[in-house]
Nucleic acid binder design. Structure first.
Lengths: 337, 337
DNA sequence: ATGAAAGCGCTAACAT
DNA sequence: ATGTTAGCGCTTTCAT
């Protein structure tokens, strides 16, 4: 492989001049620039980012660490990240932790070894260990989708509490009184924030005594199992709130298994749905998070941190959710207005 | 950040000795090893892979370049890649080309700059340019999911021709005669191979004259549009074969839009479905490709190439598909047996 | 079983 | 507007 020295010889200049041309830095005369560019082409020169990063301490690489890359919510967020990063000529490394703190720590280690300039982290669990490790290795971190406590850090998320509140209010307006919530882990903020919104709506409507929250995982299987449990109790719920899209799918699968009609017998609402390109018939009433926007905004924030534009203070950005009302909330035989 | 030199001083040894310990290479006495490991821990030393790669010419990094990372088929394949790569302590960089050759070339360039050891490539379009570029940069390549012509290269794919043949045979046995196929680009082998399987089944059953193939993109929107076109023709088809999962979703959406019952009026078959965790009610009859296995096998092949175990000749692995029969193929009002 | 010296390819810092 | 020098952190090569 040709190196910068080969190009320099070919163009009759010093290596640093070639460096200046390919990096568009410093002053270069038009004539020199052209000769260098010609030499680059002739030799098919490809700069070595390892050497570049080793010397400059900048790798122009970010990492996006999410808890479930199979979830279209995170896939869409990843698009936002990729677009914002690409616009500044940064490359993105994607990591999937499957909600495991051990995998998260392992990835943090790999990313530190690779000298990434910054990490967009969806923390698995509520711990702060990974964040502290990255910061101690001079790697900038922006927390995405979730909150963490115990460390001052930039974060970007959507308004889970308000989204949940609106969904439950909608159900209550439709006449529902027995509304069950099925969510993920207790130590994840998206879970507890959505529970808080659910609570506020219930209490506000004098339904505080009817509150019933089932904690599990943010996946279809957990939604399925917990729905079976919830439907064993009597009186049975007339509506179920799933804290994410996969839980919602599990809920509907379980209800169908019991031959319970949605929304005829039980209404269902959730956070996030699948993209329309994956849905034979859009059906679910849900709170839509601006996933792409979250990824984009978080990346722009991270890039500003990296470039030192934001020297002090930390930002906490909260983006609004949108309620999309579809078939799964009515008409309901028992409670339609 | 501490360097290998700091660790060496702390442990009272030479840097190369530290290198040997952390890489498990060469002979090290137990006592030295322990002192070095203690120093690593105390200083929280993290090796710098840039420096390592620059010197050793090995980055222990692979790339997976796919055409649509939002497709669960590729997501599952990515899991197979990640698991196989992780087992050998390789990291994987994921790249998404959106079926664009320009994006593919751009990623190839980035990957060459990053000195990845190997690339698993789902080629966008039928060109060989990217592959030649990577090979000329001493980067090993395994082609996945598709074939390319014009270059000797390792490849791993599933048996598209046979899978399509079986699906069409199934329809014909159910009594269908007017079977339309909706597929992706003409220059992608998965498209043409599936067309070939469709043709063979049709001709073999004396239905060669009824062949009708619509070429478009491998996505829901294209499936939707082409189905609308196909349903304008008369006589109308009684069955439609979608060449992938997203096309199938578009097909069913379009049929529902026309109030055409599936499978009552028209049966639908396809390659691949969505995972059950995304499906409220599994429905589609389809040919299942071993996506995880394809990723795993391709990665193992690539790693063998990298290590030089496979010095000459090229492998072309073809894995079998499995037909999963569900509701979308029957009972059909017009042609049920 | 351990070490010394050199150099991978590039750019920061300092000339001119 | 261009060049010289040095060195980023590691491992290869060759000793001992």
């Amino acid at each position: 492989m040709p190196t910068i020295l080969d190009v320099a010889k070919r163009a009759g200049v010093a290596p640093i001049t070639v460096s200046r041309v390919i990096n568009n830095s410093g002053y270069i005369s038009q004539a020199t620039r052209e000769r260098v560019e010609a030499a680059v082409k002739e030799l098919r020169y490809v700069p070595n980012t390892l050497a570049r990063g080793l010397r400059s301490k900048r790798t122009k690489t970010l990492a996006l660490v999410v808890t479930d890359i199979t979830n279209p919510y995170f896939t869409l967020m990843a698009r936002g990240v990729e677009d914002a990063a690409g616009a500044s000529n940064y490359t993105v490394i994607y990591c999937n932790t499957d909600e495991s703190e051990a995998k998260e720590e392992n990835y943090a280690n790999i990313l530190a070894q690779r000298q990434v300039d910054g990490v967009l982290l969806v923390p698995a669990g509520g711990k702060v260990k990974t964040i502290k490790f990255l910061l101690s290795n001079d790697i900038n971190v922006v927390v995405v989708d979730r909150r963490v406590s115990g460390v001052k850090i930039d974060s970007v998320q959507s308004d889970s509490e308000a989204g949940a509140y609106c969904l439950i209010k909608l159900l209550i307006e439709l006449g529902h009184k027995r509304i069950v919530m099925i969510t993920g882990h207790k130590d994840v903020s998206t879970s507890t924030d959505r529970v808080a919104g659910y609570r506020r709506a219930m209490v506000e409507s004098g339904l505080g005594e009817n509150e019933q929250v089932y904690y599990g995982e943010f996946n279809q299987q957990s939604g399925y199992e917990l729905t079976k449990q919830a439907m064993m109790h009597s009186p049975k719920p007339t509506a179920i709130f799933g804290a994410n899209n996969f839980i919602a799918i599990g809920i509907i699968q379980a209800l169908r298994g019991f031959k319970i009609d949605v929304p005829g017998d039980v209404s269902v609402v959730a956070f996030d749905d699948l993209p329309e390109s994956m849905l034979v018939s859009p059906f679910l009433t849900f709170a839509e998070q601006p996933a792409y926007e979250i990824g984009r905004v978080a990346t722009e924030l991270l890039l500003k941190r990296i470039s030192g534009e934001l020297s002090r203070g930390h930002q906490k950005l909260v983006l609004p959710t949108t309620i999309v009302q579809r078939e799964s909330t009515g008409p309901n035989r028992k409670y339609s207005k």
